[in-house]
């Protein structure tokens, strides 16, 4: 098996692939090697770091919940609706994945700042200001991260055999009941993977957050923002915080692998 695989890959491709792998691995290894291991834990336990970590956890979890509430129905619509304009909607829903996050932040400012068309209404009618607030961080993270859930769930829905849902319907289940008790369990592993990707992307969000919600300690300064700020003052602290983020990312990755392996087995 192994011999068969290696004989199929030409040597040049193998060498290029190896270099590509090194390019991805070396910086992370260097980060771990440069970490001031004696002080990593105390750095991660410092009040500022804990504050940023808590805020990051709250915001990325809230982002995930909002993404499930709105993103799964959006994926459902994209996968099943035969209305015209679905291709445009799909492109729009995918755009934030490829848009530079800073541009996303500026776009959010244009819409939701106190002088933007929506932000003005929110502020003058409800007294809500999204910029420089936790809600603003969650909005920015949702804008950037929700597409990951939408795309994953939509792809999985497309692969569900329509007969399953038809059987459920002939047994008298309504569309909601069918979706929740038949379709969702079938796409479970993909849904979980989409959730993990969304949460991780929200956790790492930087550009849209700092552009839209600023960098206020304890209010909008999430862990990536704290890393950026620390880098200009104290490299050791920045590397320590990066190690913390790296550990969380690895945990997500390992969790994802488990899910995918589970998906293969079923």
């Amino acid at each position: 098996m192994r011999a068969a695989t290696s004989s199929r890959v030409p040597r040049v491709a193998g060498a290029l692939g190896l270099l590509g792998g090194l390019l991805l691995v070396v910086p992370v290894v260097a980060l771990v090697a440069r970490a001031p291991w004696g002080t990593v834990l105390s750095n991660l336990g410092s009040p500022a770091a804990v504050q940023a970590l808590e805020l990051s956890g709250i915001c990325s979890t809230a982002t995930l919940i909002i993404s499930i509430i709105f993103g799964v129905p959006l994926a459902w619509v994209l996968a099943r609706s035969t209305l015209p304009g679905m291709r445009v909607l799909r492109a729009a829903a995918t755009l934030p994945m490829v848009l530079p996050p800073v541009v996303g932040g500026i776009a959010l400012l244009m819409a939701f700042s106190r002088y933007g068309p929506l932000g003005r209404v929110l502020f003058s009618v409800f007294g809500i200001q999204l910029t420089y607030s936790i809600a603003g961080v969650i909005l920015a993270e949702t804008f950037v991260a929700m597409p990951f859930l939408v795309i994953t769930v939509e792809a999985a829905l497309g692969a569900v055999s329509p007969e399953l849902e038809e059987v459920s319907a002939t047994l008298g289940a309504g569309p909601w009941r069918t979706f929740l008790s038949v379709t969702l369990p079938v796409i479970g592993p993909s849904f979980a993977a989409g959730c993990a990707l969304t949460w991780a992307r929200a956790l790492g969000e930087f550009g849209a957050t700092i552009t839209f919600a600023g960098d206020i300690a304890g209010r909008t300064q999430t862990l990536p923002l704290a890393v950026y700020l620390a880098l200009q003052r104290d490299e050791g602290l920045a590397v320590s915080l990066s190690i913390g983020l790296l550990a969380i990312s690895l945990a997500v990755l390992i969790g994802l692998r488990g899910r995918w392996l589970g998906a293969v087995r079923t």
């Binding site: 400012l109 700042s113 002088y115 839209f212 600023g214 206020i216 300690a217 304890g218």
Partner: peptide, 23 residues
């Protein structure tokens, strides 16, 4: 107070917080 201050990396970005943003 710390909760009232948003920090920007340079002076142009700081000014933009008022001109474009909601600071």
């Amino acid at each position: 107070p710390e909760g009232q201050v948003t920090v920007a990396p340079d002076v142009d970005t700081t000014a933009a917080a008022v001109t474009t943003g909601d600071a």
